[in-house]
Write a protein that binds this DNA or RNA. Structure first.
Lengths: 337, 337
DNA sequence: GGCAGAAATGACAGCGCTGTCAATTTGCTC
DNA sequence: GAGCAAATTGACAGCGCTGTCATTTCTGCC
């Protein structure tokens, strides 16, 4: 009923071991043999049994994607990364499992250990903000589990993928400056996330480069949520000297800012320019549509997984790939009145 | 290094097969033996090797969660279901994999077959809208793969979980009626989704029960997105006789309606009551917070998975469980002026 | 053509469990 | 306490692959 490796071997007139070699792209098989075996596999629609491979070969062909489900970033961001990781895993015939890992709460490491001993993933993909949680990284190294990170803060010899968020933030603030804005506010994301730090740094860099002294009142803490954007904006709009533009550290907060602008009777972009970061689907649905930074999350998930898989399969060590951003200029920003 | 079943057997002074029986909760083991074995497992922190179990036992301990990534519903909804499914799988020591399955495009069935022959899931969880895609259901039955559905439209002998969405929709419209509203509009979701149909049916039922004739202008097509809510609302607000309340088929569209209300200078809830459906995190962050129906998505994912797992483990056939909804009355609805 | 060394191929055991079925023990009945 | 059925336990093979190492075949070179 099921086609086994042995059946393919018989059909191709080679030993099972040779079929195994072809299956695993090992060396020391002549092209002629390789092709004969490949043809037989194809003809018989052979599908290796993952458990058998895993048991005999002592590897699981499994990649686990870890995320924090306390402080999780916008779930659409994670969903996109997940999609990308999945795509890469599929292409390499690996399977993927997702693991929420509550960082608060002490049994974090125990749960991680359970993941390893229960499922034996060959490698792990880390997503923000757990890319930089030191105890986890330590444990990963101790257990000798290879991993790749999406947007890690520390850039040591980590493999994975990043975007130059600081430069992107700077670019978007420069866009506002170019429109004549001077009183530009910034709404920060959750404090210890790399994303928040880089975006703030980019804002400061652009302002400083334009020779504008930092006004503390113009920088307000948010928490990456719509609601926190509303709050932050209300704070800004109650100021004697309101900003003429607000750069929020993500689109959800930017949407909140636009919402609050409505409350205060400020028309976007006529009275206030607003921009965000991430280019979530939401940003295009708003009216006016949001000027933002397109971060290719799906692609980033894919790249991180590819770096990991490459390293797993011994194709070099894997790198920290930097992907380009795109400044999406849309209707929510305009020249200062 | 790794603790194997054989080691546990030796420690408990029984045969490996007996340990296996305890591991799998099989019958015909005396309580004394069972406890001795359990104690040994505990003491040695024994973790069965999933691949070995799977290979020998001809089952994968794997549940696949299928979703459509074309027309996907709000990604937060899927993320919550995924979380619930994962929780149930973890509790039963099953693993879970997620599979996007593009319904448009002809190779749908082929991709499904590949999933089965590559990964051999013991069962499958179906999420809207693919709970009712006939070719898939047919193939699932042919391949003899057990499945459970989240909010299926057809209620035959399907197992899984539902919520009485029609009654919930009726309840929310009755809430509006109770506040004195008569011109109540409805924004429909994507046409062929069960969710859209039930919510529309509940709306009609409530209106009819209140003796109000249906006004076609009050029922507008949307597509479950924020943007479609904005569009629909603009259409409603341009009417000579505006609605005093809008019931949108989900929270994203309701948010869009509130947005558009701002554009038209309508204050919510003073000039317009708005309500949604789903109780997404967004709905609490809005100002005013949204009156909506709390649909326990996470819980529903968990229940669907539990029904599936129960059936897989032979604890009866599994049922179609109906979960209760909660009408969350918040600031976005008020008495008609 | 003969030889050493490299490349290609194969034989075989075994990964860690569970299915099957046989052996043993237990609990009952008379 | 013998006799029998039911419950419990165990022996053993084998799930479908891959690691190890032995064997065969090919290469280049004198």
């Amino acid at each position: 009923m099921r086609v086994r490796l042995e059946d393919v071997a018989r059909a191709a007139n080679v030993s099972p071991k040779t079929v195994s070699r072809v299956l695993n792209d090992e060396a020391n098989v002549t092209d002629a043999t390789r092709q004969r075996v490949r043809a037989a596999m194809e003809a018989m629609d052979y599908r290796p049994h993952p458990s058998a491979r895993s048991l005999a070969g002592n590897r699981s062909f499994l990649v686990a994607m870890l995320y924090d489900n306390n402080d999780n970033p916008a779930s659409t961001y994670l969903a996109e990364i997940q999609d990308g990781v999945l795509e890469a895993c599929d292409a390499h015939r690996y399977s993927m499992m997702v693991r929420p890992l509550r960082m608060r709460g002490g049994d974090f490491i125990r749960r991680f250990d359970a993941l390893i001993s229960d499922h034996h993933p060959d490698g792990v993909v880390l997503t923000p903000p757990i890319t930089d949680y030191a105890p986890l990284l330590k444990r990963l190294r101790e257990s000798n589990v290879p991993y790749a990170s999406v947007s890690p803060q520390r850039r040591g010899k980590v493999i994975g993928v990043t975007m130059d968020e600081q430069r992107a933030a700077r670019a978007i603030v420069e866009h506002l400056l170019g429109l004549g804005h001077r009183r530009i506010a910034h709404v920060i994301g959750i404090a210890d996330h790399g994303a928040s730090r880089w975006r703030l740094a980019g804002y400061r860099e652009a302002m400083a480069a334009a020779g504008l002294p930092e006004d503390p009142a113009m920088v307000v803490q948010g928490a990456f949520t719509f609601g926190s954007g509303v709050e932050a904006a209300r704070q800004l709009f109650s100021l004697a000297e309101r900003p003429t533009a607000v750069f929020a550290a993500n689109d959800d907060m930017a949407t909140g800012v636009m919402w609050a602008a409505g409350e205060y009777g400020l028309k976007v972009p006529h009275d206030l320019s607003v921009c965000g970061f991430d280019d979530t689907p939401l940003s295009r649905q708003l009216w006016p549509a949001l000027t933002t930074i397109q971060q290719p999350s799906r692609e980033m998930g894919k790249i991180a997984a590819e770096q990991l898989l490459g390293a797993l399969r011994g194709h070099g060590a894997g790198q920290l790939v930097q992907v380009p951003f795109v400044l999406q200029i849309r209707g929510s920003t305009a020249a200062v009145p």
